[in-house]
Amino acid sequence: MKVTIEENEETGKFTIKVKTEDGEEKTIEIPKENLEEILAKLPPNVEII
């Protein structure tokens, strides 16, 4: 699983794009305050880009 994290400076939010092993892609946008909480919940086999 690969996770790409991009900061949107205009909105102050982060866009998180997840690509699973089977090629499925999902995108979510979260507030900056929630980034550490989300990262802590990721499984250890995740590659963060």
Results as ranks from 00 to 15, higher is better:
Met1Gln: 04
Met1Thr: 11
Met1Trp: 15
Met1Ser: 07
Met1Glu: 03
Lys2Val: 14
Lys2Arg: 09
Lys2Ala: 06
Lys2Thr: 14
Lys2Gln: 13
Val3Ile: 11
Val3Cys: 07
Val3Ser: 01
Val3Tyr: 05
Val3Pro: 02
Thr4Trp: 15
Ile5Cys: 05
Ile5His: 00
Ile5Arg: 02
Ile5Lys: 01
Ile5Ala: 01
Glu6Met: 12
Glu6Lys: 04
Glu6Gln: 10
Glu6Tyr: 15
Glu6Trp: 14
Glu7Arg: 12
Asn8Lys: 04
Asn8Gln: 05
Asn8Tyr: 04
Glu9Leu: 14
Glu9Trp: 10
Glu9Asn: 13
Glu10Gln: 11
Thr11Gly: 08
Thr11Met: 05
Gly12Asn: 06
Gly12Met: 02
Gly12Glu: 04
Phe14Ala: 04
Thr15Asp: 03
Thr15His: 06
Ile16His: 00
Ile16Lys: 00
Lys17Met: 10
Val18Phe: 15
Val18Gln: 01
Val18Cys: 15
Lys19Asn: 09
Lys19Gly: 09
Lys19Thr: 15
Lys19Val: 15
Thr20Phe: 15
Thr20Ala: 07
Glu21Trp: 09
Glu21Arg: 04
Asp22Glu: 09
Asp22Ile: 04
Asp22Met: 07
Gly23Cys: 05
Glu24Ile: 12
Glu24Met: 11
Glu25Phe: 11
Glu25Ile: 12
Glu25Gln: 06
Lys26Gln: 13
Lys26Pro: 01
Thr27Phe: 14
Thr27Ile: 15
Ile28Leu: 11
Ile28His: 06
Ile28Gln: 03
Glu29Gln: 09
Glu29Met: 09
Glu29Trp: 09
Ile30His: 02
Ile30Ser: 03
Ile30Arg: 00
Ile30Lys: 00
Pro31Ile: 11
Pro31Leu: 12
Lys32Asp: 04
Glu33Thr: 04
Glu33Lys: 06
Glu33Tyr: 08
Glu33Pro: 03
Asn34Ser: 08
Leu35Val: 05
Glu36Gly: 12
Glu36Ser: 09
Glu37Leu: 08
Glu37Cys: 11
Ile38Gln: 07
Ile38Met: 12
Ile38Lys: 00
Ile38Arg: 00
Ile38Val: 12
Leu39Val: 03
Ala40Lys: 10
Lys41Pro: 00
Lys41Thr: 12
Lys41Gly: 11
Lys41Asn: 13
Lys41Asp: 09
Leu42Thr: 01
Leu42Ile: 05
Leu42Trp: 06
Pro43Leu: 05
Pro43His: 08
Pro44Cys: 07
Pro44Asn: 06
Pro44Val: 10
Pro44His: 12
Pro44Met: 10
Pro44Thr: 07
Pro44Ser: 07
Asn45Pro: 06
Asn45Asp: 11
Asn45Ala: 06
Asn45Tyr: 12
Val46Gly: 03
Val46Trp: 10
Val46Lys: 05
Glu47Leu: 13
Glu47Val: 13
Glu47Ser: 11
Glu47Pro: 05
Ile48Ala: 02
Ile48Tyr: 09
Ile48Glu: 02
Ile48Lys: 02
Ile49His: 09
Ile49Gln: 05
